[in-house]
Design a protein around this nucleic acid. Structure first.
Lengths: 212, 212
DNA sequence: TAGATTGTTAATCGATTAACAATC
DNA sequence: TAGATTGTTAATCGATTAACAATC
């Protein structure tokens, strides 16, 4: 794959295409036109074609797109057919929920270990995944070929944990703490800022004409 | 507040300004210039000034912005000084985590009730919030002035629950299920699609030059 | 007053949409 | 072949950045 830069907006939309195509596939739909898909997804057909053509011509004139083929191709673009070894840092409420979430494994994301500061949790397990002491994390990361860390701890601790992880050679961080982690450009950070999401909902409730 | 439309991009950034200003405030910083804030946040000073001026002139020439004042003003714009009554639908892994999250109450979002289909959970509580039967949900929503529902159930059920909630007069939905909920324009939906977030991380890992 | 920094207009850039020739 | 629909270029729209006059 060459280095032409795909815009951030396009990448944001890819997983949504993938989701809709997966549903169509499950329903046994064989082909779809950009027009029909655009109506389902409430976007323009033009945008769909433009987005897809960033990655190559997946369709056929006069026919449309083969659902199953396009689904697979987008999956490949998203890197979903590769396996990843993850650790989870933080076994609090949110960490527990994420560790319990089987769905990620379906896509090749395997949580191999869980780390927490709380000594009471050490030695226990979530879905057979052991909860270990934070001080053993660097060694575990290096020895188990861990490439992604899920960070679900308070922001104060998150910054230093991220630094440690970067030093251990982590490739990606899925960040749930309320802070923007600063890492070298070779380390990918994807943040889920729940409180910001809730604030946007709040804004919209507050500013919808009918509610004022 | 008049009806001039604020662009979606601006609204997306507001909570982040709020977070940085909150931190500055906690550190006792009294004033900040758009230039200094821009360096902290890695955005342009121009964008900060443009964004803020959508809502009015919060700064002062030659001085900058008063941190505490600006923080409060953005909080008001986001509607964070109003109280909201919420219900949580779905007491699974993720639902549990969300119910256990005290932080939302700090911002005026109170979970008043939890609903789940699993009969084993009925009658139990999370942080003193009772888990109730799904069939009692409509009455509860109407009688307790519930304006926001948090949906943390599988997508198959989510669509019909959302319909029910809309009929009960819900104002906003914070959606964690993997589906785009279709609701009337008066109902605000804010979705957190965790799997899409993980796919974006996957894409970035897969397509970073150094990793190929 | 001189210096600093905003608020705001103008210029630029990028993303979305429209249009249509290519082609299955 | 005729009809359908893509791939792609061109036009439009919106968002970001730059510049600077206003003003504290």
């Amino acid at each position: 794959m060459s280095g032409k830069d795909i815009s951030r907006a396009v990448i944001r939309r890819l997983p949504r295409y993938f989701r809709y195509l997966g549903e169509l596939k499950d329903e046994g739909v064989e082909k779809i036109s950009s027009q029909d898909l655009s109506e389902m997804m409430h976007v323009t057909a033009s945008q769909i074609r433009q987005d897809l053509n960033n990655f190559g011509g997946f369709g056929q004139q006069g026919y449309g797109y083969n659902v199953s083929y396009l689904y697979d191709e987008i999956g490949k673009i998203l890197g979903l057919y590769k396996e990843h070894n993850l650790i989870l840092v933080g076994a609090g409420n949110l960490g527990h929920a994420l560790a319990g979430y089987m769905n990620f494994e379906k896509r090749g994301f395997y949580i191999r270990g869980i780390f927490d500061l709380n000594p009471e949790l050490l030695g226990s397990k979530i879905r057979d995944i052991p909860i270990m002491d934070m001080k053993d994390m660097p060694e575990f990361v290096k020895e188990n070929d861990i490439d992604i860390a899920v960070i679900a701890i308070p922001k104060a601790a998150a910054v230093s944990v991220a630094r440690t992880l970067v030093n251990c050679g982590i490739k990606g961080i899925w960040n749930f703490s309320h802070v923007d982690l600063e890492v070298p450009p070779s380390v990918m950070v994807e943040s889920v800022h729940l409180s910001e999401s809730l604030m946007r909902l709040s804004y919209n409730l507050n500013n919808y004409e009918g509610n004022k």
